[in-house]
Design a protein around this nucleic acid. Structure first.
Lengths: 342, 342
DNA sequence: CTGTTAGCGCCTTCAC
DNA sequence: GTGAAGGCGCTAACAG
């Protein structure tokens, strides 16, 4: 904030009115005469006066700013959700302060605590991996107890009572697996870099259920967890040699593309030898070779709804009465070149 | 901001000390006796007291918040720069408010104006396409005149006098083109979706200069501008049929990948028939098929330096004396499968 | 119609 | 050692 800003006080001195008259005039208060209003408005305009937001915030005890805490911004999915949030927030006159937890519990806690000191009116959060591992959600509860509502998206937990928006991960994963089964795949593996998260486990369950229902002969599910891509490269290539695989469901976009490239690198063909489906309809999926069939994660809508949820909550006056809601978005399959009927 | 926050005043009532004593005690002011300090600190701890940032900001006339205005967050390059900014800012105790101009002049102006009312202490900006087209940079100058410094990155303009950080776009593009010439390419086209920007025109110049210096026979440069990808798909496919092309330099990552896919889609081989080089070492380039040779744009460092620039400026007291600087980062070529010696 | 006063929460003289 | 007072910039209740 600079110190050469025009203030009501200076404007009052310049115009020979009192501070409150100036304030009222600029607010178009009917108490003030048109003549005075015009005089003051002209002056304010001339000096390019803009009311100081910080002072206004202090007075009104709100900031019209939302804290957004996401695990990672390099994943296209989160970038897209963020753009959805930003758009909605801007339209409704809110700013967003973005913090990246980088999948770290500690950073997440710090970000919440730091922003809970009056910097924001509420939060939009997608939970970090480490937080799921620790099963420690106290920092969220503390914020809520302080009067700062939270709106969660995608990675959520039933341990915290607040508004949430997710896609139907179980069904989506079921759908993807079923699609592969219909394509004739009989040895389908599930690849996941997000095994510890809520969405990760829902997607595994959907995959397993689809196998259980769909395949004639009983086939055990195979879930390959990615902690480190280097390591995975080695392990998966080995796995491909030692096991029959004809279908892959990947829990996100990058792992889908990455796995597909490993398959191709191993001399196999996609989709002829192995079909691949990923999650998130991002920039990778549309531009890979072959293009990746995906479950659309509806990132923009997730962001929009998450923002609406928190803003409604903030602007609602009888806060106690409204129940918290979990919105579940339906998804659909976008068929591209990485899957095919055989 | 919630209304159930602990304040100095409440703490004063609870402890039977005055507000100023409580304030001093918590600030570890030596005037206060150790006994009182301990008593008050314990109480503050118990009630999880955190000083209200807004009030502090008003008092100190600063926000420790930086406004970041970028054209687009879905491009991996900008997401990466943003993560670099966020990291550096967080470490130095600053928050960032992010606005996405979406390449629109109007949104950019609005964002600057809105944040210039006391929401932020300064700006980090990468200029929108439309702003370059309009050649109107007054909104930046106004912010600076108000005492809000600006730090620009990547897309900059010499019309505004402020700190800047860029890569050596001319040389980088020269390098990329030269590389193709060394590979034996003789019909190299330049593809650009950012023709109107500073970086866009520098890269075209680098390409043209390299052609001029490197090719034996005089070959005219061919710059294909992408306004709309749909349209480009049609035009470029036609262009490929009607013209001899054996090398492509793309001004960013997506256009590189996209063009490569069009080449492959037309039945040609990369790199055997046509070599391709793009800009930005992003997630697309590393995972395409073949992987794309690129000029690394050093996004993380750009973000870090842009953040350092603005923070140094904000924390510097004899503002007048320090000259504005433009930092130019060297780049390097990351060779992958889309180029090859013939 | 206009001005005085008070207060949002914090910090910082200055007085006791 | 502790407290009272004033002010950051704004708004609003209350006088005049």
């Amino acid at each position: 904030m600079s110190n050469q800003m025009m203030t009501l006080k200076k404007l009052a001195e310049l115009s020979n009115f009192s501070v409150s008259t100036v304030s009222k005039a600029l607010a178009d208060n009917p108490e003030i005469s048109t003549k005075t209003k015009n005089k003051i408005k002209k002056l304010a305009d001339f000096y390019n006066y803009k009311p100081n937001i910080t002072a206004k915030n202090l007075k009104e005890r709100k900031t019209r700013t939302i804290g957004v805490i996401i695990p990672n911004i390099l994943a296209h999915f989160f970038a897209k959700v963020l753009s959805g949030i930003e758009k909605e927030a801007t339209e409704k006159g809110y700013n967003i302060i973005t913090c990246i937890s980088d999948e770290s519990f500690e950073k997440e806690v710090k970000s919440v605590e730091m922003l809970a000191n009056g910097s924001v009116d509420g939060f939009i959060i997608s939970i970090s991996k480490e937080t799921f591992l620790k099963e420690n959600f106290k920092h969220f509860q503390k914020a809520i107890d302080k009067g700062l509502p939270i709106s969660m998206f995608d990675r959520v937990t039933e341990k915290v009572y607040c508004d949430k928006v997710v896609i139907n991960d179980f069904e989506s994963s079921y759908l993807a697996t079923e699609k592969l089964i219909k394509c004739g795949c009989e040895n389908i593996v599930f690849v996941t870099p997000i095994h510890d998260t809520s969405v990760g486990s829902d997607r595994v369950r959907g995959y397993e259920k689809a196998l259980e229902n769909g395949l004639k002969k009983k086939e055990e599910s195979k879930v390959l967890i990615i902690d480190d891509y280097q390591e995975f490269t080695h392990n998966f290539t080995k796995f491909l040699k030692e096991n029959k695989v004809d279908g892959i469901v990947a829990a996100d976009e990058l792992s889908g593309i990455y796995t597909m490239n490993l398959v191709i690198g191993a001399g196999l063909k996609v989709p002829e030898d192995i079909s691949v489906i990923g999650f998130t309809d991002g920039i990778l999926a549309g531009n890979s070779n072959p293009p990746l069939t995906t479950i659309d994660q509806r990132a923009l809508e997730l962001g929009k709804i998450a923002a609406c949820n928190i803003i409604n909550r903030l602007e609602d006056n009888q806060k106690e009465t409204i129940q918290y809601e979990t919105t579940v978005l339906e998804t659909y399959l976008i068929e591209r070149g990485s899957t095919d009927f055989k």
